[in-house]
């Protein structure tokens, strides 16, 4: 067992699980989605980006770009929540909620790609 790899894999999979946790539920119901969940998902996603920086192989480049996409979508989702009517003090309107969840679902796809690549890379090297 390699602690370095454990930490690396932990953050990448955590980014996915938090993202799923935020997205599940009715898309327009603000009661089903927690702002804290979104916040932690964004935070972990940023951490995974930092972990991936520096790899010069082909797969490393795609790996990093998947992470950047997830970041971008989650940042926009958070911004929509923050600057919408009433800010973060009140639950967002139904329309706003739909926009936020759509963006977060996009980030979810990017995170799935990340995890798939992690698994394939591990299986491929077979060492």
């Amino acid at each position: 067992m390699n602690l370095e790899k454990v930490i690396f894999g932990f953050f990448i999979i955590l980014a996915l699980t938090l993202n799923v946790g935020f997205v599940v539920g009715e898309i327009s119901n603000p009661g089903h989605h927690s702002v804290w969940m979104l916040f932690t998902a964004l935070l972990v996603s940023l951490v995974t980006t930092l972990l991936k920086i520096g790899d010069r192989s082909q797969i490393g480049a795609v790996f990093l770009s998947a992470s950047l996409v997830a970041n971008l979508q989650l940042i926009i989702a958070t911004t929509v929540w923050a600057v919408g009517e009433g800010g973060m003090d009140q639950p967002p309107s139904q329309e706003q909620m739909v926009t936020i969840i759509s963006l977060a679902s996009g980030a979810l796809v990017a995170n799935i790609v990340s995890v798939l690549m992690l698994v394939t890379d591990t299986l491929m090297s077979r060492r």
Binding site: N2, L3, E4, I7, F8, L50, L51, K52, I53, G54, D55, R56, S57, G60, R127
Partner: peptide, 29 residues
């Protein structure tokens, strides 16, 4: 380059900045 590094030296090269930092901090982990 990572594959070739492994073939030549018999050990994985640190691929990311995090990885080289980690190895410096906790060698042998």
């Amino acid at each position: 380059e990572y594959t070739l590094h492994y073939l030549v030296h018999g050990e994985e090269r640190a691929r990311t900045l995090y990885s080289s930092w980690f190895r410096r901090l906790y060698p042998g982990c």
